[in-house]
């Protein structure tokens, strides 16, 4: 074999990288679930809350969207212990990504609920339902159907953002690959596997997102 690639080495490190990919997936799925829960609650609050609550949530959303994810991750990493919250790297990573994810989820939910049109909420309020009933019994069930494709997209974004957790020493895919490069001084073999693994995970999710979009369109 004269391909120049050390295929034996690539096979040797594959189990390690697959385990790291699994960590990446675990972190991302947990993040999306948690951001759905908190993001959902906060967006209900953002839609129905008083002026102060709305302004605070608006500020939070602007913060998560306007500050680089890397800075937010570092901020959470250093700020949590100051408030007496001591988590291990894995959960610090989940917390940091959830913080960012909640901001984006609020925007997704708001955009979906607003896209339903005023007629729905006006009619429902006119029929005597309370604002909370209107939101949860009329608007959310309709928005749910359209929320799935953007949420899959959100999972893709979270997986990509989780690579940044390598800077706070979470043992996810990018960190493990980086270590392998520095331990073995083998560059190209590791980089090929690293990008390939991301492309497989992210690519299949992008495909799923498109499929869901097509299905919900009909």
């Amino acid at each position: 074999m004269t391909t120049g690639l050390d295929t034996q080495f690539m096979l040797d490190i594959l189990p390690k990288l697959l385990r790291a990919t699994w960590i990446t997936i675990q972190i991302s799925v947990l993040t999306v679930i948690l951001s759905c829960v908190f993001g959902g609650l906060l967006s209900a609050w953002r839609i129905l809350g008083g002026r102060v609550v709305r302004a605070v949530i608006y500020g939070f959303v602007e913060f998560t969207r306007g500050v680089p994810p890397l800075v937010q991750i570092a901020l959470i990493y250093f700020a949590l212990p100051r408030f007496g919250v001591v988590l291990n790297e894995f959960w610090t990573g989940v917390a940091a990504l959830t913080f960012i994810g909640v901001g984006y989820t609020i925007e997704i939910v708001r955009a979906q609920v607003e896209s339903l049109g005023r007629g729905q909420s006006d009619a429902s309020l006119g029929l005597g339902l309370s604002p909370w009933q209107t939101l949860f019994l009329v608007l959310v069930p309709q928005a749910m159907r359209r929320i799935l494709p953007p949420l899959t997209n959100e999972l893709v974004n979270v997986i990509k953002a989780s690579a940044l957790l390598s800077v706070i020493s979470v043992n996810e895919l990018t960190k493990v690959a980086n270590e392998l490069i520095f331990i073995h001084f083998v560059v190209i073999e590791v980089l090929i596997e690293l990008t390939f693994l991301y492309l497989v995970v992210v690519g299949s999710l992008m495909w799923l997102s498109r499929w869901l979009e097509r299905r919900s369109a009909t």
């Binding site: 690579a163 940044l164 390598s166 990018t174 190209i188 980089l191 990008t195 991301y198 992210v202």
Partner: peptide, 22 residues
């Protein structure tokens, strides 16, 4: 486009950073 959208930017930066000297 698939490569750019399918990999995290930090990975793209690493690839270029490590690949250039190689």
């Amino acid at each position: 486009v698939f490569f750019v959208r399918g990999t995290p930017i930090i990975v793209q930066i690493f690839v270029l950073f490590f690949l250039a000297p190689e």
